[in-house]
């Protein structure tokens, strides 16, 4: 536009005003576009604040009515209007711990395989396949979990655990009770598979930031692959790996559909991880649409608010750690 305006001013004396008009239009357009993008960016901030504030307002009646008791009580009885979050918080944390215990080592193992061991031809296909695992929607994990994984747990895994680990005094309490198929362990295992690709993707990316001279130097003095990974790669990328693990934890804490299908949805706390339980998100998914307005709805919103705060803290820590690694890699 300006390019065509410049020759025009040379041929005609009356055009400088046209030119300034054109420039004025462009200036306006410039300012308008800038303002538009700024507004959109601000909206992202407002969105997060909006989520926090709306949930808090919705949750306030429950917090006010039950006070601290809301966090301690594990009774959840809509007819009696007695609501406590303890069972849901407990289930959320225990399923996430199980998921992390299995998903993190396996995810790291795959990342090591992809960066250090994999034949170059297979690197891309296997990497993509693992990423596809992350792309499968959680409802699919849910339906698969309930039709295939739950019967497997019920028929084989849980009787085996009850028969072996369940007989050991102390630890046995974790594996007590009948093999129902549904339960905290089943949900934790499905979660483990779901977070695995996140751990792998981020660890692989941070492993690749390790300068190859460092690895070559270690190989040069005769270190084995295992020693290079343990002594060079992991220490160098520690912050990033922890960040990736936290990110996966954030996913596990908030995962809803897959868990709802296989956890059994029982609002109670029991020591056995084979027993049925619930999580914050499963409880909301199950009950919110039918909840009576008033304390019931408010209590579910309060659960949502708690989940939001927990995941916010976990994800913020994760991002902070990952950004520290980026600063390091940028140097």
């Amino acid at each position: 536009m300006t390019a065509s305006a410049i020759p025009a001013t040379e041929t005609s004396g009356s055009l400088p005003s046209d030119r300034s008009a054109a420039l004025g239009r462009l200036k306006l357009r410039d300012a308008g576009f800038r303002f538009l993008t700024f507004g959109a960016a601000s909206l992202v901030l407002i969105l997060l604040l909006g989520v926090a504030i709306t949930l808090f307002i919705g949750a306030w009646p429950a917090f006010q009515h039950f006070g601290l008791d809301f966090f301690i009580s594990d009774s959840w009885s809509p007819p009696k209007e007695r609501f406590g979050a303890a069972a849901a918080i407990y289930g959320t944390i225990v399923t996430s711990i199980i998921a992390m215990l299995i998903g993190v080592p396996v995810g790291l193992g795959i990342a090591v395989f992809l960066t250090e061991l994999c034949p170059p031809v297979l690197r891309r296909p296997i990497g993509v396949a693992i990423e596809l695992l992350a792309g499968i929607p959680s409802i699919i994990y849910g339906i698969w979990g309930v039709y295939y994984f739950k019967p497997f747990m019920q028929a084989y895994a849980q009787p085996f655990l009850i028969g072996t680990l369940g007989a050991i005094p102390g630890v046995g309490a974790l594996f007590a009770g009948p093999p129902l198929g549904y339960g905290i362990l089943t949900a934790g295992l499905v979660l483990a598979v779901m977070i695995l690709p996140f751990v792998t993707a981020i660890s692989r990316d941070v492993f690749e930031t390790v300068p190859s001279v460092l690895k070559e130097a270690a190989y040069g003095v005769g270190a084995t692959t295992f020693e290079v990974v343990g002594n060079i790669v992991l220490p160098y990328t520690r912050v990033g790996v922890v960040g990736g693990v936290m990110l996966a934890l954030g996913r596990a804490l908030g995962e809803t559909m897959a868990v709802t299908f296989v956890i059994g949805n029982a609002t109670k706390i029991s020591t056995s991880i084979l027993s049925q339980g619930t999580t914050i998100s499963a409880m909301i998914a199950n009950q919110f649409a039918d909840a009576d307005p008033g304390l019931f709805t408010s209590s579910l919103l309060a659960l949502g608010f708690i989940l939001f705060i927990i995941t916010f803290i976990v994800l913020a820590l994760a991002r902070w750690m990952l950004s520290r690694l980026e600063v390091k890699a940028g140097r």
């Binding site: 949930l55 990110l247 908030g254 809803t256 909301i284 994800l315 913020a316 991002r319």
Partner: peptide, 27 residues
């Protein structure tokens, strides 16, 4: 400002979708 927005956006990226559902329900 952009650093803050970037940070918040990254958190929204992995925020639990059920919480988003609650927000939109209220809103």
């Amino acid at each position: 400002f952009a650093a803050i927005v970037r940070f918040i956006n990254d958190i929204l990226l992995s925020a639990p979708s059920i919480v988003v559902g609650l927000f939109v329900y209220e809103f």
